[in-house]
Simulated assay, not measured.
Amino acid sequence: MAMTLSDAIIKCLDEIKTPANYMQVYKKIVEDHLYDFKEAKTPASTVSALLGNFIRNRDSRVKRIPQKGGNFTYFLSKYESEISLEALEVVDNEPKYNSVQEPTTIYGFEERSLHKLLSSFLNSSGILSKTIFHEQSNSKDSHQKWIHPDMIGIRFLALHTKTSQSLMKAINRKGIFELMAYEIKKEIKTDYELKKCFFQAVSNSSWANYGYLVVFEINDILMDEIKRLNQAFGIGIIRLNANPFESEIIFPAKYKELDFITIDKLCKINADFEKFAEHVEKYVTADNRYVSALEKELADFCDPFFLSETASKAYCIEKNIPVDNIPEESKVS
């Protein structure tokens, strides 16, 4: 049986051992006669797309390292311990071939375009969320934006009877909901970027029950350090997917008590945050007769979200967010 292109890519990476870009992999496939590209119009791009597909499908065999200009190098996970730290920072200076177009990368879209994807993922988990625009705050101090999360979320405790709901409200109103803070990034590719983004998330979520760093594209090389930081500081990590329903919490956040002094400060300087707090207060203190109406009012105030993969895919294409598609010519056996 003839070797598939995916198998040929794995074989080449196994023989190369060190990080290689898609063109290097393509050239070795051709030189070693591992696959016949006669039906592929742009064979190098096909290799590039399939390499990206290994990453998007969370294939444990393959990892990649971001390079300048939105490019990547790829290697097999089993050789990770043999790769030097210097190699992780190498910039690909190999001449580009005019006949080959680089695949769409994550650099071509606005970070805030990810908010609707995150709100969709959170909504599927029973969390209502709201974007907080720090530039609309009335504070002149630029450092104050380090207390603003990109998004905030609320999850209500599932109490099924009116009696238990009333009892919880009477005893401890804080106990019927949890507040989350989310710091969102398009990509994190180096240890320096990880530290900067992580401690921004620590600062911006100091008031909340849970704090999360949300990343669309993250270098798998950093996972050990992410685990250490998560255990030390309790910030959770969410890997966001173009299909929001395939997003995942890589490391959960640790619970902490609400900091009402910082909440009060945020309410003073940001109208959206204050409005959110008002909606929550009205909901948790309302008579049961008005709960449904106030829940709808809160939901309408919060960010919109997708109900289907089709809608989210169309949105990603419109916003230039990479989707988990590969060219037709790469669907070969």
Results as ranks from 00 to 15, higher is better:
266 L>E: 00
261 I>G: 12
234 G>E: 04
254 K>C: 11
227 K>D: 02
270 N>D: 12
237 I>T: 02
256 K>P: 00
251 F>D: 03
224 D>Q: 14
220 D>F: 08
278 E>I: 13
216 F>W: 03
260 F>H: 14
277 A>E: 10
266 L>M: 13
275 K>A: 14
281 E>F: 15
275 K>Y: 12
236 G>E: 00
224 D>A: 10
229 L>F: 07
264 D>C: 10
266 L>R: 10
279 H>K: 15
264 D>L: 15
234 G>R: 11
267 C>L: 08
269 I>H: 06
216 F>G: 06
270 N>V: 02
247 S>H: 07
204 N>W: 06
267 C>F: 00
228 R>I: 12
275 K>W: 11
202 V>M: 14
227 K>Y: 02
239 R>Y: 02
255 Y>M: 02
217 E>G: 03
213 L>F: 14
276 F>Y: 08
278 E>N: 13
263 I>Q: 01
249 I>G: 09
219 N>E: 05
227 K>L: 09
239 R>Q: 06
222 L>T: 03
241 N>W: 05
252 P>F: 15
202 V>F: 11
244 P>D: 00
231 Q>M: 08
263 I>K: 02
234 G>N: 04
209 N>Q: 12
277 A>F: 10
277 A>G: 15
214 V>G: 04
211 G>F: 09
260 F>R: 09
221 I>G: 00
229 L>H: 02
229 L>E: 00
271 A>K: 04
220 D>C: 13
262 T>Q: 07
278 E>Q: 15
201 A>F: 11
255 Y>G: 03
264 D>G: 08
248 E>P: 02
260 F>S: 13
269 I>R: 03
271 A>P: 00
218 I>C: 03
221 I>K: 03
254 K>V: 09
264 D>A: 02
255 Y>V: 11
226 I>R: 04
206 S>I: 10
219 N>P: 01
267 C>G: 11
280 V>Y: 08
217 E>L: 14
242 A>M: 07
280 V>A: 13
213 L>M: 14
